[in-house]
Design a protein around this nucleic acid. Structure first.
Length: 335
DNA sequence: GACGTCACGGTTGAA
DNA sequence: ATTTCAACCGTGACG
């Protein structure tokens, strides 16, 4: 369980161990593209400069503003296909050693050096998944390559999550100048379908607490981190801390925009610095939505980003089946 | 003063 | 159901 939020040296609230809300991530990139210096962005959004630096660096590298995939295990190398081959090798030569199997997997092109299971993994497979072949083989022989049923999807596919460690795939050009998150999506859905473009992104960007989790599903399919509560919970200085600001949490503007992002400076009206208030971390999110809404010009203001406003927004089809999970229990508890 | 980097303490989720 | 472990996080400090 995350703490109830901590306040950094700049007065911003953050949740240790958790990514910044996407609204803030977006703002960081937006402001940077407007020519605002990272140090100013840091002060303005009350995010540590190290974090700003990291987010901008990642954005420059991957085109994504989204955080990497948190948690989970490394992609499995012992896919059903590999297991099947191991089984075959073992059936053909019950006395085969694990290291021999390993060599054969490589030689036969079943695996390459990057996904070749370790000898210990192979041993484990032999022990746990294949077991006693002398008993199993005749049973198996009648079955057409009945490898372990799951998972149907290759793990590597699933793990094509956006991450600095997962550079832009060869076929997918980076799209500097706007957030090209869609390029990392393996989904067969159209980008528009996935993203829902503005309607979704506006909610997302504004961290609508009521964001329909269904719209987040795609993301969870490619990201081990089902998108954090940030995507659907209210912000406190950009941090989802419903309990900190229960009222602001549900404050929504007439057009459906929650009041969360409004405290960020909009590109069209960026003062060099935020009020040097010794900010209550919650202050910025007190629900004064009007500022953001009325000055909601970051999309159409002719800013450097505006030509790609949809593209900017697009990446924010944050998907998370866990988003609701993350958020609601917290808010429920807070209430 | 600005900024890149990294140790740290933290969260997460598959195995 | 619980534990382990390796992924990621943002902060804060250093250079």
């Amino acid at each position: 369980m995350p703490a109830f939020g901590e306040v950094n040296q700049l007065g911003g609230v953050f949740v240790n161990g958790r990514p910044l809300p996407n609204a803030i991530r977006l703002r960081i990139v937006e402001l940077a593209q407007l020519g605002i210096r990272p140090c100013d962005i840091s002060r303005q959004l009350r995010v540590s400069h190290g974090c700003v630096s990291k987010i901008l660096a990642r954005y420059n590298e991957t085109g994504s503003i989204l955080p990497g995939a948190i948690g989970g295990s490394k992609p499995r190398v012992t896919t059903p296909t590999v297991v099947k081959h191991i089984r075959t090798y073992k059936q053909r030569d019950p006395g085969i050693f694990a290291w021999e199997i390993r060599d054969r997997l490589l030689a036969d092109g079943v695996c390459d050096k990057f996904n070749l299971p370790s000898v210990s993994s192979i041993s484990r497979i032999l022990r746990n998944k294949i077991g006693n072949l002398s008993q199993q083989s005749h049973y198996e022989s009648g079955k057409p390559s009945h490898a372990p049923p799951q998972p149907a999807l290759p793990y590597n596919h699933l793990y094509s999550y956006p991450s600095s460690k997962v550079p832009t795939p060869p076929g997918m050009a980076a799209l500097p100048g706007h957030m090209a998150m869609h390029r990392i999506w393996p989904s067969s859905h159209s980008v528009t379908d996935i993203l829902g473009i503005r309607s979704i992104t506006e909610q997302q960007i504004s961290d609508s607490p009521s964001f329909p989790s269904a719209k987040l599903e795609e993301w969870s399919a490619i990201n081990r981190t089902n998108f954090p509560s940030a995507a659907c919970s209210p912000l406190v200085n950009g941090v989802d801390k419903p309990h900190l600001e229960p009222e602001a949490k549900y404050a929504q503007t007439p057009n459906g925009l929650p009041s969360t992002v409004n405290s960020y400076v909009t590109p069209a009206s960026i003062p060099p610095y935020p009020p040097p208030t010794p900010v209550s971390p919650y202050m910025g999110f007190s629900g004064t939505s009007s500022a953001y809404v009325s000055a909601h010009t970051w999309q159409g203001s002719g800013s450097a980003l505006s030509p790609h406003s949809c593209d900017i927004a697009a990446p924010f089809a944050f998907k998370s089946t866990a988003a609701a999970r993350d958020f609601h229990p917290v808010s429920a508890a807070a209430l």
